[in-house]
Structures are given as structure tokens and as C-alpha cells.
């Protein structure tokens, strides 16, 4: 547990020292979201119709942008190797890194979600569900993404490959996340979708660190 806290704190500290890394994905998200009214239509009805999908897709992409940073710096300076040879279980340390990654990327995303809702004319109730779906869904993206990063961290040009590996695995989260938001807009029950997201979260919490740890061992060889 101490190792878990130590790794999380270290990663958070590193992120705070380089604030632009936190800000860039958020700015990316805001800019891309504001492109849609320009590209499709500024009419509130249209925006409301596409809002759940675009917000979720852009969230997916902005998480994808930040995934590389999860292990990259540690791989380059050798601290990842130290984690591999440390007496603590690697899956635990990986979980700590994933938690830190989510706190740096997923949580800010959650905090700006009211702004995104306002930009796309979502009402208050819908925005709450949007935030709830993001709160449950974005950790899944970090967990699943960790496996992809762990597999590609040793490669020189892993970026494009990473999206090919990870995006198909993001599809269930996208479906249920966006669907929860559209359901509440249509006045339909949305608890089932949120529960599915919760189930994905627990499932990925249980299995993804193990897979990512195994993948890291292979990548470091």
C-alpha cells in the first residue's frame, strides 16, 4: 500500500511540475468540441442530438493522446526497470500509475464536463448524467489503455499502433457512455447503462493491471 501511494504521489508531483501536460488534453478537447458547431451546425437541436457522441468520442481521443506519457518517461530514464525489479508486485505499481494517470487526465475532463454540456446546450439533468458516465467510464479508458501502452512502450514509433490496439477495446465504453447521455435526454431510464459502465470499471480494475504488468515484462524483456 505504501508503494502504491508513493508511486501515485510521485506521478502526480511530476504532472504538477509540468502543468502543460494536464492542460493540453483539456484544450484539445475544448477546441475539438467547438469545431463541431462550426463544421455541422450551430442549431441547439442538432448540437443536442450529437452532443453525447461527440463528447464521448473526443474524451476517448484526448485520453488516447495522453496514454503514451503513462510509461514513456519512466521507460526512458530507467525507473520502469527499477519497478520491475522492486519487491512490490508489478500489478500494484501499474495500478498506482494508472490511478495517477486518471487523476491527471480523467478527473480534469470530468471537471470541465459542465462546460462541455453548456457548449452543446445540454440541460442540467443531462449534464449530471454526462458527468456520471465520464466518472465511471474514463477510468476504464485509463485501465484498458495501460495494456496498450505497456505493449508498445519499447517501440520507437508506437503512437499510431497504440490507437489501433486500444480504440477497438474502447468501443463498449463509448457505446454505454454515450448511450446513457442520450437516454436521459429522451427521458428513458439510464441506470442500466451507468451500471454497465460500473461493471466495466470493476472488471478492468481486476484484470487490466495484471495484463499490463505481463505486457510490461515482455516489453522490457
Amino acid at each position: 500500500m505504501r508503494a502504491f501511494v508513493a508511486v501515485t504521489r510521485r506521478d502526480l508531483l511530476l504532472a504538477v511540475r509540468r502543468r502543460s501536460e494536464i492542460a493540453n488534453p483539456l484544450l484539445f478537447m475544448l477546441i475539438v468540441i467547438s469545431l463541431f458547431p462550426l463544421g455541422i451546425s450551430p442549431a441547439p437541436e442538432t448540437l443536442r442530438l450529437i452532443a453525447p457522441g461527440i463528447i464521448w468520442v473526443v474524451a476517448l481521443l484526448s485520453v488516447l493522446l495522453t496514454l503514451e506519457s503513462m510509461f514513456r518517461a519512466d521507460f526512458d530514464d530507467g525507473s520502469l526497470e527499477q519497478m520491475l525489479v522492486s519487491p512490490h508486485p508489478l500489478a500494484l505499481l501499474v495500478t498506482a500509475k494508472i490511478a495517477a494517470h486518471w487523476l491527471v487526465t480523467g478527473l480534469p475532463l470530468l471537471l470541465v464536463s459542465p462546460l462541455l454540456g453548456a457548449l452543446t446546450h445540454l440541460n442540467a439533468a443531462t449534464t449530471v448524467v454526462l458527468a456520471a458516465s465520464l466518472a465511471l467510464g474514463t477510468p476504464v479508458l485509463s485501465f484498458v489503455g495501460a495494456i496498450g501502452v505497456a505493449l508498445t512502450v519499447g517501440l520507437r514509433r508506437g503512437g499510431a499502433l497504440l490507437s489501433l490496439l486500444v480504440l477497438p477495446l474502447y468501443i463498449p465504453t463509448l457505446i454505454f457512455g454515450a448511450n446513457a447521455v442520450s437516454a436521459v435526454m429522451d427521458g428513458l431510464p439510464y441506470h442500466g447503462q451507468l451500471m454497465m459502465l460500473g461493471a466495466f470499471l470493476l472488471f478492468s480494475l481486476a484484470l487490466a493491471p495484471l495484463a499490463a504488468a505481463a505486457a510490461l515484462r515482455i516489453s522490457m524483456n
Binding site: I147, L151, L165, P168, L169, A211, A214, A215, I218, S219
Partner: peptide, 10 residues
């Protein structure tokens, strides 16, 4: 070995 992990995840 890496693809084995990936295909198991898949």
C-alpha cells in the same frame, strides 16, 4: 509473447 497478451485481452 506480446501479441499473445494482446490476443488474450481481445
Amino acid at each position: 509473447r506480446a501479441t499473445a497478451v494482446l490476443s488474450l485481452v481481445g
